[in-house]
Design a protein around this nucleic acid. Sequence first.
RNA 1: GUGGUUGUAGCUCAGCUGGUUAGAGCGCUGGAUUGUGGUUCCAGAGGUCGCCGGUUCGAACCCGGUCUUCCACCCCA
Length: 460
Amino acid sequence: MAQKPSIPKGTRDFSPQEVARRNYITGAIREQFERFGFQPIETPSFENYDTLMGKYGEEGDRLIFKILNSGDYLKKVDESAWSEKDVVRLTPQLSEKALRYDLTVPFARYVVMHQNEIEFPFKRYQIQPVWRADRPQRGRFREFYQCDADVVGAPGIVQELEFIQLYDRVFASLGLEGVTIKLNHRKVLSGIAEVIGAGDRLTDFTVALDKLDKIGRDKVEAEMAQKGISPDSIRRAAPLFEMQGSTSEQLGALKKLLAGSAAGREGVGELEEILAQTEALGLRAATCQLDVTLARGLNYYTGTIFEVAAPEAVNMGSIGGGGRYDDLTGIFGLNDVSGVGISFGLDRIYLVMEELGLFPETLDRALDVFCINFGEEEAREALKLVMRLRSRGIRADLYPNDTKVGKQFKYADKREVPYVVLIGDEELRAGQFTVRDMRKGEQRSYPLEAWSDFADSLEP
RNA sequence: GUGGUUGUAGCUCAGCUGGUUAGAGCGCUGGAUUGUGGUUCCAGAGGUCGCCGGUUCGAACCCGGUCUUCCACCCCA
């Protein structure tokens, strides 16, 4: 090892403990996904360059990891692009593949490619890593996992209700309380822009509005003005900044503001219905609330928009998000297929759970029974016992060689093994094995042939 | 992509205005205890001070570059 090895910026190794904890989270998510009727699919870690580029906006294109062509990758480069250092023209000549940036676009591609084999409505889930060439921060990595569930071919608001329930059940099963599911509607946003006379500035308007709780009203108004939204429009948007009170009060204010917009009225109507029915169904761990400043993923969402905020006690951005897109597969040539979906951010949920101390201690235990090795003859008997216990589904192991007993115990202690079995020459002569309960510090013996009594005594 | 920040033993961190042999706690190894971990006591090992270059008689410390960490933007899970 000439140099210290390292891993790329924004990537991580995962220890056994971390993998156990990550599996605990994905296990809970997977279980609920399946319980709600979703089926798993997987897609390649890299896609064709053209499949991904242009799907996430200009910012997204910048953050996509491009894969350099193999072989003589300069062969196809055209001279003028090269001499002008024109990156936009050059990149597609150097790269024909790119790393998956999210799970939604590959899913849309999948649906289009397999449309004749799929039963619609198609409910799929997908738990895979994605890559972004972003600058890392806490809870922001260049390689991270998304856990997505989407439905295509299912119009109407039943799916929206289902997704709120799904979010809630996952967080409830993880013991993660206090998360907030924020809800908004693309048509509400475009309706507002329309009625205040900023319909042509929808994106600038919503991007600025999104920052309201972060930078405050004055700065939001300043940003809107700076983006070319007229003072009159900003003045007419005033009710938005003053929205307070109960959900029904907010909905009332929205309805009033949006009276002149058909799309806006439709959006408010859907939100009202979703909120009312969610109220009726009830939630276990999360709360659901209307948030008109929520403006994510404008590039493709066309209906409901979701974002999940971590509990307030934890400083972490969103731990999930999603929404409805009426025509996502349209970009791949399949029109009029409606989709709606949500995503869980595994890596961020991990950080939140760690900070709140929500991981069960039993996750750190990889062995139930551990046998001390006293030598060849004793080890043969121990191995026989180990195999019997394993056949009963008990995680059992034998120390590989007969080093000092103290050292073997220390190893068992570090591994947090609850039961240590001793088969030394004393036990061998008596035809017994001794079990030490490491937590209680008590020991008892069983006849060798009564191993199943011991197995029965272990908690399932 | 912009601005800032961090890096010293396996881990968490000290290290004065630049001064000779870089420290602590925890962990690790051995012993007290050759069939008993988690407590205690004793001893020991372990460091190109992120990396490259510069200033200086002399650099962990100052300067430049680079990598990394974290933070604020941008954006987002």
